[in-house]
Structure formats: structure tokens, C-alpha cells
Design a protein around this nucleic acid. Structure first.
Lengths: 218, 218
DNA sequence: CGCTCCATTGATCGTAGTCAAGAGTCGTGG
DNA sequence: CCACGACTCTTGACTACGATCAATGGAGCG
């Protein structure tokens, strides 16, 4: 079943901080750790992040978790080929989203070619990121993983030096295929080397030496 | 840049063993280890496998390799969001392919909605497989990786018990995030346990106990 | 102020990687 | 048809990176 989309109705309302696909569309708001949809749910709606961050993940039967991606403001997630979602989506912190209803691609391309382009483009961008992430998971060391993660996040957030880390250590670990202890040790090690600094509140990282990080990224 | 596609002209000719998107399209043939396209090449054509297997991979600067996927008969690869390919594609053994030229998605959806559907569907299927593979790379043990790989290959080849392995051990290793030695040891271990058997020619595996493999897959 | 949760740090373990040697397979040519 | 050589795969011994187990530290909230 091919899928494409149109705006869906919403239950909640909040102000928009990011240009939505259509102006003045009401937003869905989710609180920290709230589930947006679960693996296996019917995929009749997909989302675009307006503010906050979303994690999408899969679980093994014994509870091991792999977070395939964090979705930041402006990014689309949850567009599926089949009738159901293939991963679970949760709010990392407080999140506001725009939802779109599925429609077939040829109808969409005729009615709203811009949205059709955006959906295909978002899907291809997700695939590109997934391929890059497979390289990281399969072939990079712990330091290389952390360096890649920090630089990637900094790029997407377009922040000047100080990167906000909306997610906990355990989320970073489950994204990079590491344990929470290894994430912590590696961050400490990078701080000792003077490459980054870790403010006391633990929710941010200052990239002090991007060139060094780029060298460590592999 | 959004992309979609139409049949491209070909240099070589061979008979088709799989239903092509259009009847009687001449095929491109590649010999073992021949490059189909490289990371960074202009992505003006994408391909559908008619026979044989293709590997697509990325490299780190020091030569570490991650094979993100093997593409078997009937599968589409090389459809990119941007203007250039984001990975290298090579023939695993002898391969024959159909090539399609890129066109914009709205033109394609209007002219040939079936092909547009197939491209979006193939992209979403690739993404689904990539997500499954990230779970494998990030969170599974060596035995779990090998068991998952063998079962996945068996499903896609629809073979009865005996699975042909068109790729070398090093390719399997670079796909699963392991070394060639670990792949070899793990296969031997599974053979000793009576779960599989490995014919002398090394190019096949007989799945003797699928239930056991499914249990080991995690 | 004290409780809870998360992060950090330390000590030890284990899985897979590395280094190295040998065996098997296949292709080539006499 | 067999001998040789190249290459891939297997096996063994040892290492190391990250995981696990455990204790402590620190931030944020009620």
C-alpha cells in the first residue's frame, strides 16, 4: 500500500514556532516520555516536528532497545509503506507536532505536489541518515560514535558552539549501540582532552574544538 | 531535489528471467566485483536487479567498510534524494540489471503512477530494512546476527532449506559488523549444534533447524 | 532539606577482534 | 589428469574494547 498525506484534525492547540506546511494548523502536544504511536499501530497519520525532539525505536523481546533516530524541529517521521508503524515514537521532552493523514501518492502528487515532494524527500533523507548510521553502528569505535553524534547534532541544531542535549544518556547509548557507562566515560574522556566541556546541568555540551572532533569522527 | 524515473537506454543485451517493469527492455550485465556506480557519482539512473546480487556499501577513510544491503532479483537500488549516489554499488557475482532514468516525482506520478508507486514503495521498503538492520548492528550478538542474516536471506530467496550464499565471508562480515573470523567461527558453531550444515563448496548453507535459528535470532 | 533519579567512576569480565598459521577450494597450465 | 599457486576459509592463541556489576556523586524537585 502506497502512502501519502494531507493535514489531519487535531485534539489540542498550541502556538507554532516553526513554519508549518499550512498556516494556522493546530498542533498536537505531547509531554516528556509520552508515546506518540507504537510499533504495530495503524499508520494512518504521520507527523512533522514543530518543537522539541522525538525518538523512534525498536525493541528486542528481552528489552534491548535501538533508537534509530531522533527527530528535531522541521523533520518528518512516521511515513510508512505498509498499513502499520514499524517502530515506536515517543516524546523526548515536551513536543509539539503537526499531523498529516495518509493518501495515495498519485492523488497527492496531483492535489498537492509540494507535500508529495516533501514526503518523498523526507523518506529519502531518512534513508540516507539510516545508511550513515549503519556505518557508525557497524564499524565505528565508541569515541568515533560519540564524536559523530555530537557533530551531527550540532549541525542539525545550527547552534553556535553550545549544543543542547534534549535526551538522557540512556537514549544516546541506545542510539549509538553502547551502554550508558561507556557514553559517560567517553564524554568525560573528551572533556579531559579539552575537546568539549560538560556544564553541571548535564543537558548540554560545548564543542570547544570542532576540528579535533572531526578528526575523531573517522 | 526530488527524483523519480523512466527507463534508460542500455548498452548491452541479455534475456530477462524476471518480469521487468516494461516488457523487452535490454539489460545491463556486470561481472563479479565490477563497480555499478560509486559514492559521489551523479545519480541520474537507478536500477532494478533482474538476476544475481548487488552489494551497496560505504567506506571510512581507513578502509573499514559497511555493506548496508545486498540487493537480490526484483529489488530496486540507487534511487537517491540528491543529485549524487551516497554509496558504492558492486556486482557480487555476475549480475543483470534494468536501469531507469530519474524524473521529478510529480511528472512521474502523472505519466506513470505505477512506477511512481514502485519507487516510493521501494524507498520505504529500503528504509524499513535499514531500521531492522540498525537494531541488528547496534544490539545483537554475533550468533544473533548470523541467525538473523541466514533467515532473512532464506525468506528473500524463497528456497527450500538450502540457501545459496552468493557473497564471500568478508561481505557477510562487513554487512553484519563483524570480522571474517567471527563469521566463520559462528557458522562452524551453528553447524556443530546441528542447526545448519555447510557444504564443501562454501557457497551454500542448508538450514536444518529453522525453529532453532528463529530462537537464536532474538 | 531530603529524596529520587540520573550520571559518573571504579573494578572485573567476556565477547569479539587481532595476529598468525594451516587447510581446503578452485583455476591454470603442463 | 595432476601439480602448482592463489585465494578464501577455518582454527588457534592471545588481546582489548566495551559490557557488566557495584558504589558514589550530584542535580533537581517536592
Amino acid at each position: 500500500m502506497l502512502a501519502a498525506f494531507e493535514p489531519a484534525p487535531f485534539r489540542r492547540h498550541a502556538e507554532s514556532r516553526v513554519e508549518p506546511l499550512r498556516a494556522h494548523v493546530p498542533l498536537k502536544v505531547f509531554s516528556k516520555d509520552q508515546e506518540i504511536f507504537a510499533e504495530g499501530d495503524e499508520a494512518d497519520v504521520f507527523y512533522k516536528v514543530v518543537s522539541g525532539a522525538v525518538r523512534t525505536y525498536k525493541l528486542l523481546s528481552d528489552g534491548r532497545r535501538q533508537i534509530d533516530a531522533f527527530h528535531l524541529a522541521g523533520e518528518i517521521f512516521g511515513a510508512e509503506a505498509g498499513g502499520e508503524h514499524r517502530f515506536t515514537a515517543e516524546a523526548v521532552g515536551e513536543v509539539s507536532l503537526i499531523g498529516y493523514r495518509r493518501r495515495s501518492i498519485d492523488v497527492l502528487a496531483f492535489d498537492d505536489p509540494d507535500l508529495a515532494r516533501e514526503v518523498l524527500s523526507a523518506t529519502m533523507a531518512s534513508l540516507a541518515r539510516a545508511q550513515e548510521h549503519m556505518l557508525l553502528l557497524g564499524r565505528k569505535s565508541a569515541v568515533e560514535k560519540i564524536a559523530s553524534f555530537l557533530l551531527g547534532l550540532a549541525e542539525r541544531m545550527t547552534s553556535g558552539g553550545a549544543v543542547d542535549l534534549p535526551m538522557a544518556r540512556i537514549d544516546i547509548a541506545d542510539h549509538l549501540g553502547l551502554t550508558i557507562e561507556t557514553v559517560s566515560r567517553t564524554l568525560t574522556q573528551l572533556e579531559r582532552q579539552g575537546v568539549i566541556s560538560l556544564p553541571a546541568n548535564r543537558r548540554g555540551v560545548v564543542l570547544k574544538d570542532r576540528a579535533a572532533l572531526r578528526r575523531l569522527r573517522a
